[in-house]
């Protein structure tokens, strides 16, 4: 069964009297463990699609099944729960909380699921070590480089062992070297069977992903399969 199943998904923004369709009739099916890249020009609806996949937003019409469960009509509370449990977000601008240190940032998603403090800290430590921040536990985000911050964000996205990991231009703010590091970590996650959906302008990612979805004006323009393995 597909992890993500989308049918005729539409998102229309209402700007005063003007209707602004950001997504039109998107159909998509993603299997467990796949590595998907979403590409397209600015304003083509990539972020909009990712937000819908991440249950941050609700579609104007169409259906969305996440892990076999219809989530297109759930209320805010349930969507929050799903975001916390089944989705891991990685943002372009890292979006760490400045007043919390590395460990505290990583364990944030766990605290909303009612994990005990000890268990959260232990797991956060493991994740931080896994992304190569074993010696930076007590650092604040501003004491870390961009690449390191993004690694914290990746560890945080993994905290609740989500079904899908969504990344919106994860290397957008990074120099090519740190960007490459981040991409190799993501590759690594993919090797371990994680489902990755990454929005990018970067052709490199396109080549790493198994499938690249090209959006244009809110529609899937073409899908590119990349059998590199």
């Amino acid at each position: 069964m597909a992890v993500v199943h989308i049918e005729k998904l539409c998102k229309t923004y209402q700007l005063g009297p003007v209707q602004l369709p950001a997504l039109r009739d998107v159909d998509l099916e993603i299997e467990q463990g796949q590595y998907i890249a979403i590409m397209g020009p600015s304003g083509s609806g990539k972020s909009t699609l990712l937000n819908l996949l991440g249950c941050l937003d609700r579609p104007t019409s169409g259906r969305y099944w996440l892990g076999g469960k219809d989530v297109s009509t759930l209320d805010d509370n349930h969507l929050s729960l799903i975001r916390g449990k089944r989705i891991g977000f990685i943002f372009q601008s890292y979006n760490l909380i400045g007043q919390l240190n590395v460990i505290e940032n990583i364990k944030l998603p766990m605290s909303y699921q009612g994990f005990s403090e000890e268990r959260s800290i232990e797991r956060a430590g493991k994740l931080a070590t896994m992304v190569g921040l074993g010696n930076r536990f007590k650092h604040r985000p501003r004491e870390l480089s961009g690449g390191q911050q993004q690694r914290v964000a990746i560890a945080r996205a993994l905290a609740n062992d989500p079904v899908i990991i969504l990344a919106d231009e994860p290397t957008g703010n990074l120099d090519s070297e740190s960007g490459a590091e981040i991409l190799s970590i993501l590759d690594d996650l993919h090797q371990r069977g994680k489902t990755l959906i990454i929005v990018t302008h970067d052709e490199h990612i396109g080549t790493r992903a198994e499938r690249t979805i090209h959006l244009l004006d809110g529609r899937i323009e073409r899908v590119e399969y990349n059998h590199r393995r």
Partner: peptide, 8 residues
Amino acid sequence: IRRALGAR
């Protein structure tokens, strides 16, 4: 951020 990470 908190909302995205699952805060109700």
